[in-house]
């Protein structure tokens, strides 16, 4: 059976190094299979997170040959196996051990985003009416599996470590989902520029390119948010109109 070498980063917050492991390769294998095989047979204490093995939970994020990927959705057949396959933890977050890193910062950021606040129900039975088309726009954002690969690749976090001032693409997606939610009545534009740092984003689109859910993070979430924020910031007269536009006709549902 053909084999391949996996160069896996082993270590913890204090430091570490790559270690080589060889394992056999069978049809259809993904990187996560190889890592788990190595764990079961050669390195019982190799730390790695995974749950679904089907690209749905966003647990198995890592950098494979230097690219942020979900290990469970990266087929070995798409990698050059003549060379060792390098697997290392996401670089934008502190290391815990081996492939597991500390993504706790993301959970803190999430808490700072103002929660959903619905408008009063449309019908006497306490329910709402929404058109499929309005819902779909937001459903794109709600596909997010919180893998944090976009956070990992964004230079504002990865190179400039602006974790205190910038919430990162994942959370712009969440803010966009809330702001464009057909029922939402909250206003989150003020903090976007002030504490959430949308101004740091210079639209490199690296986040969109790595998103395993193919969410058009920059074009559909960040740019519309930036426009609204700039409108508000520089032209208070257009502020109300812009907000309405962003809300996609909230209040005028079917």
């Amino acid at each position: 059976m053909p084999g391949a070498t996996f160069r896996i980063w082993r270590g913890d917050a204090a430091g570490g190094a790559f270690a080589d492991y060889s394992t056999e390769v069978t049809e259809g294998m993904v990187v996560l299979d190889a890592v788990l095989r190595i764990q079961a047979a050669q390195a019982g204490d190799l730390a790695v997170r995974w749950n679904c093995k089907a690209g749905r939970c966003g647990s198995c994020s890592a950098e494979v040959n230097g690219r942020p990927r979900l290990m469970c959705m990266t087929r070995l057949s798409e990698l050059p196996l003549e060379q060792p396959v390098t697997v290392e933890p996401m670089r934008a977050f502190p290391r815990i051990k081996d492939l597991a890193c500390d993504v706790g910062w993301n959970y803190e950021v999430k808490k700072r985003i103002r929660p959903f606040k619905p408008r009063p129900p449309d019908a006497p039975d306490g329910t709402w009416r929404m058109a499929q088309a309005d819902v779909e726009r937001v459903q794109e954002f709600r596909k997010c599996i919180e893998c944090f690969l976009c956070q990992d690749v964004c230079h504002v976090l990865r190179e400039h470590a602006k974790h205190q001032e910038f919430i990162g693409p994942r959370y712009f997606v969440q803010v966009a989902a809330l702001e464009m939610h057909p029922l939402d009545a909250e206003d989150r534009l003020a903090e976007l520029g002030q504490t959430q740092g949308i101004g740091f984003c210079n639209i490199t689109k690296c986040c969109t390119r790595v998103c395993p859910e193919n969410i058009t993070i920059t074009d559909n979430a960040i740019i519309p948010l930036k426009e609204r924020w700039i409108d508000r910031h520089y032209d208070p007269i257009r502020r109300f109109l812009g907000w309405l536009r962003l809300k996609g006709g909230a209040g005028s549902g079917p």
Binding site: G126, T127, W128, R129, M130, V135, L183, D184
Partner: peptide, 16 residues
Amino acid sequence: RELEAWGALFDRTQDG
């Protein structure tokens, strides 16, 4: 319905 009130967005019928 409670999930909807907390922000879930289910697919819709013709009448919303």
